[in-house]
Nucleic acid binder design. Sequence first.
DNA 1: CGCGTCCGGTTAAACGTTTAACCCTACGTA
DNA 2: TACGTAGGGTTAAACGTTTAACCGGACGCG
Lengths: 334, 334
Amino acid sequence: MVTLKDIARAAGVSIATVSNVVNGTKPATPQVQRRVQEAIERLGYVPNPHAQSLRTGHSRTLGLVVPDLTNPYFPALVQAIETRARALGYVLIVMDSGNDALRETEALTLLAGYRVAGVVWVPVDDARPLDWPYPIVTVDRPVRGCDTVAADHAQGGALIGAHAVALGHRRIGLLSGPRHLQSATLRRIGVLRSIEGIAEVAWEYEVPFSSDLPSEVQAQLCEPGCSLVVGANDAIAVAVIRHLREAGSRVPDDVAVVGFDDVPWADFVDPGLTTVRQPLAELGTSAVGMLHARIADPATPLQQRTLPVELVVRRSTERSMAEFAGDATEGAAA
Amino acid sequence: MVTLKDIARAAGVSIATVSNVVNGTKPATPQVQRRVQEAIERLGYVPNPHAQSLRTGHSRTLGLVVPDLTNPYFPALVQAIETRARALGYVLIVMDSGNDALRETEALTLLAGYRVAGVVWVPVDDARPLDWPYPIVTVDRPVRGCDTVAADHAQGGALIGAHAVALGHRRIGLLSGPRHLQSATLRRIGVLRSIEGIAEVAWEYEVPFSSDLPSEVQAQLCEPGCSLVVGANDAIAVAVIRHLREAGSRVPDDVAVVGFDDVPWADFVDPGLTTVRQPLAELGTSAVGMLHARIADPATPLQQRTLPVELVVRRSTERSMAEFAGDATEGAAA
DNA sequence: CGCGTCCGGTTAAACGTTTAACCCTACGTA
DNA sequence: TACGTAGGGTTAAACGTTTAACCGGACGCG
């Protein structure tokens, strides 16, 4: 590989001069600039990042730690992060923690060893103290001492609730996500607040973010007792649709269903799933942006940014005209 | 950060000795070993990879270049690659080429600059000459001069064809993928060979790997003229199902549909999609394994490994008993 | 005319490793 | 006893950068 020394020799200057014109550190005569540039072009010089990192003590490498790449939530996020990182001149080391706190710590340690400039981290669970030698931006889960960017889950819940009451639903079934996850809790609260005094919660279960429904929930769905089910998740919502069908309910005619996330195939299931779209790409670019800022100036105050979400209405909450004429006589809400 | 020098001082030996005991390069007395180990533990030494790379000329970093992370094909692949790479002591730099040959070249160049030990590459298109300063393993697309690992697309096609004729289908509609992609061509040939002399191709169109069907295909689906449609892709197959439905055909009773890939949600659409599962995880671990081998010994002969695929039968090709009996009436499930 | 200053350039040290070359001591053997 | 040797350790060079310190000449100014 061609090095600074080669360029220096070819251009007839010292390697310090080459370094300076490459980085624009010190001025040089047009003469010299030209000679150096020409040599670089001709020999195809590209700086050795390891030497640079060794010397300067910092690298243009970012780390990314996510719980599970195969979760449909992540690909779009990772893509956005990678794209933005590369645009800012970073290179991205990706690690999958496999939803395991141990492997996660391992990953963060490894990244520390690699002297990354910073890391974007989607923690497997909330709330853990930590102290790493690089700046961190967490996505979707607040961690003490880190910048955070998250979707506005509460708003998402509220959108769902408002949509439900606007459609005239008065008895709602709730499958809320793990209470210990802030995102799940916020969604839940958003829903509850927005239906307060208008609709009631027919039943509620706390379920894991998975498409396998606990048996008591399956039983419940046989005799729904509500006109709309809110899933904590698109995966959950789809499972709900399937079980409702098997139990003989029609969706959305008998029972409407709504999810959360807007996974890529939410539009492919039948009926298309009404859900809340998270701004995955924006979350990603935002995270990298914040990280970049903090790397540039470690003294900037901690930030907690939350990004707006969007309700995507599809067939799973469609009501026929007949039904509107039938029981949607009560006034709409905000 | 604590360095070799710190350990040397703490243990009362030279840094060369520390290096030697760390890497086991040269023997040392138990005495010294103990002192060094203890110092390492106590101070928390972790080697600086940049210094190592600079000195040795090679790094424990692998590159991964994929066309589009949001394509449901990739997450499982990437996850497997990352896991295996990490298990082998590598760290993975991921780059998304955005399905753009230019950005792809850019990415590969960048990786060259980073002095990666090797790269796993899923090219955006087939067949291009190249010469990079690191070993490469391509996935799913053969590139001259590279090791390659791919799913057995021909076998996949054959499984589909065999399944079709076994179910009694005699007129088949074919939506084959871009002819310039070897994988698409192989799938197509696999199907054709296996139905040869038994069933006939009612019609065939070459379509892009996307869920938007060309208008002539949409028109064709209004008047199917076949009892089974083979999509080049799950995305395509799902689009087919949708259009068939809109045109008034029942799936699978009137027309059966089969896809390829077994994307994660193939089981979530209605009816569940019969498709061919690619061994994504195995492709990934295999690729890293081959890369690792070649890095260790660059002289090993080029390999082309192809991995078996598997037919996953779901409802989209289910035939009722009545139909088997040759009866036109339906005896559908509840 | 002489002095300070700025400008464009060079020299050399330093970052943290690895590793070839060397050195000393103890030991086995002639 | 003397000598070769192997084992366990050290010294120092090198990897490719960046950057502080230095240097010589041209130039402006009193």
